[in-house]
Nucleic acid binder design. Structure first.
Lengths: 216, 216
DNA sequence: CATTTCTTGTGAAAAAAGTAACAAATGGGC
DNA sequence: GCCCATTTGTTACTTTTTTCACAAGAAATG
């Protein structure tokens, strides 16, 4: 049952890679491939076989020596580890350009995440529907998130509102935030925050470009 | 003059943090703050003073002991290091929901990046204008990127086309790609690729949420 | 059923990154 | 001009993460 060796602590990056492994496995599954070796699967990933095996070994031994990994079984194991073996409702706050783009993004489904509700500050947006989701006025945010017991939020509001709104979110029970605003959020440290920051990602690309070094 | 100690190699993450430092410095600048210490600035960042100083020290000594860092001067230094002290034209490939959202995103400007041209496969989209950028048919992509000597591309096409199109991009001179498609690109290793992957970021958030550990 | 060929899981080694600690500057007050 | 409070830049140390290397398990072959 997702037994992990608790003598070792699990590298943060290993968890992130688990998501990538899951995606690759699902792709193999769609191609009707039943069994895959660490050598084979890492051809489609940006890593090496030893790392794939090591990452999995933090959670248990899922492969068979001399054979490889059963694709379907490993999908189920990783989903169990990540917690994506059940549907998680998520809330989207801020239905601007990026927010509405995310409302139509199918990629969340891949991890069993479903945008269940969306809010925007601009009352004129309230009532409009994007990809089956109706935008609600932000005044109802606290009430609805609490009622629906939503734990995860996508934050796509302008930078200047991000801190305040994230505090409101925490108040009504949100425990994890994927922050798209270009500011660092200061929240209690039992609140999990991940940051998607395109511009700064580009910043480091420009650096590497200018300095002509290999990216590998 | 951007003097770096070449005995030490520069941690990849240090470069990414440089972008974050730059953003914080610009914010201080707008607030008319002239000088800032590593202690003060890291209050707005997700890091500690020692790391801020260490990261900068890879590139030179920009502060003054007993005083701190001159905000304007440090902005210029970091821009020079990153290469964002000049405007870079970038191309956007794929004007779907996410692509068009990015066309209207102001955050690129912050790093002197300007979407100069956009392409889409769907001919019916060609000619439409989003945020001053006209969508061109993808048939003209190679020619125009070559002519305009663009080196950086945002790739927002569906996963199944990403590899093929990225190869085309490399052919016409693109050297750096910010990939939003949920696949790993296999390209010559003098091509710099960064990956923005919201769904997998959420995957690791769900894990952390389920396992209740602190995110710090 | 012994042998050969694979391929995993893992402990140990290596590399990389982050943190701490402190000597060396700096400026202000007196 | 000397002392004191600051704050940097850097070296040394610690922790984390990655990579290597190989023993052990599994199937296939004759």
């Amino acid at each position: 049952m997702g037994r992990k060796k608790n003598k070792d602590i699990i590298p943060h990056e290993a968890i992130r890679r688990l998501s990538l492994y899951l995606r690759a496995l699902k792709w193999l599954s769609r191609k009707k491939i039943k069994v895959v070796s660490s050598d084979e699967i890492t051809k489609y990933l940006n890593t090496i076989p030893a790392q794939f095996r090591k990452d999995l070994s933090y959670f248990g031994g899922f492969g068979k020596r001399g054979v490889g990994y059963n694709v379907e079984a490993l999908i189920r194991e990783i989903e169990k580890i990540l917690g994506t073996n059940m549907v998680w409702d998520i809330a989207l706050i801020g239905a601007g350009k990026l927010g509405t783009a995310l409302l139509g993004y199918a990629g969340f489904m891949e991890f069993n995440l479903k945008i269940a509700i969306a809010f925007d500050n601009d009352r004129s947006k309230a009532g409009r529907v994007f990809g089956n989701i109706r935008i609600e006025p932000i005044s109802r945010m606290k009430k609805e998130i609490r009622e629906k017991k939503i734990k995860i939020a996508l934050l796509t509001v302008p930078a200047q509102y991000a801190q305040k709104i994230s505090e409101d979110l925490v108040q009504c029970g949100i425990k994890a935030i994927l922050n798209f605003a270009p500011v660092n959020l200061h929240l209690a440290n039992d609140i999990h925050v991940a940051h998607v920051d395109m511009a700064s990602e580009l910043g480091s690309l420009v650096y590497r470009l200018k300095h002509k070094s290999s990216h590998k």
